[in-house]
């Protein structure tokens, strides 16, 4: 996922994505990634190796799949995640038409009180960042082929909103 193009919107600006994806089936047979950079692990990996992943110099990022179920059975795990020392939570959009991630983001922000970085990854495009931002995402890894600058501009698509319980996008310094 690491890329030299600035295709990440974060803190209202374009930047280069610094997070690398940890492959469970890596050649060294590592259970968890080395503590040498920010690595992204899946929610399942994090759950399985929580203790190993504590106290790192480079806390991990945790990826939540779009079909995650935050029901009563898993809510303790989600609570634990939101209180852990992690770099960020990412939610995957396997296709931009899969809208589950919007509701998962709302639950993380409003029910589980996650106040750290929440990143949209996968099929994330110019045309979806505005709604994503309103649902609580504050960083966006723009898919290849989509102009990240236009996506940044798209955070200004609408100047007003009707729904009271959803936030306004965090805006860049641009006018």
């Amino acid at each position: 996922m690491s890329d030299s193009n600035p295709n990440l919107i974060r803190g209202g600006q374009l930047t280069v994505n610094e997070v690398q994806c940890f492959d469970m089936n890596n050649e060294q047979a590592l259970l968890v990634p080395p503590d040498d950079a920010i690595w992204m692990v899946t929610f399942d990996t994090w759950l399985a190796h929580q203790l190993l992943l504590e106290g790192r110099q480079f806390p991990v990022a945790v990826l939540i799949p779009s079909d995650a179920d935050f029901d009563d059975a898993t809510s303790t795990h989600v609570h634990a995640l939101c209180q852990a020392d992690i770099a960020l939570i990412a939610i995957d959009f396997p296709s931009y038409t899969d809208g589950r991630g919007y509701s998962l983001a709302q639950l993380l922000r409003n029910i589980y009180q996650w106040s750290g970085e929440l990143r949209a990854v996968g099929d994330v495009m110019i045309d979806t960042v505005y709604y994503l931002a309103r649902c609580g995402f504050d960083s966006f890894l723009i898919k290849p082929g989509h102009d990240a600058q236009l996506a940044l501009d798209a955070l200004h698509t609408f100047s007003d909103t009707y729904q009271k319980s959803y936030r306004q996008p965090i805006k860049s310094n641009r006018p």
């Binding site: 038409t97 899969d98 809208g99 709302q106 505005y130 709604y131 994503l132 909103t161 729904q163 959803y166």
Partner: peptide, 13 residues
């Protein structure tokens, strides 16, 4: 109408 229009969470049901 207002609540549902440009609803950020329910655009991709």
């Amino acid at each position: 109408r207002q609540w549902s229009m440009l609803h950020p969470e329910f655009a991709f049901l």
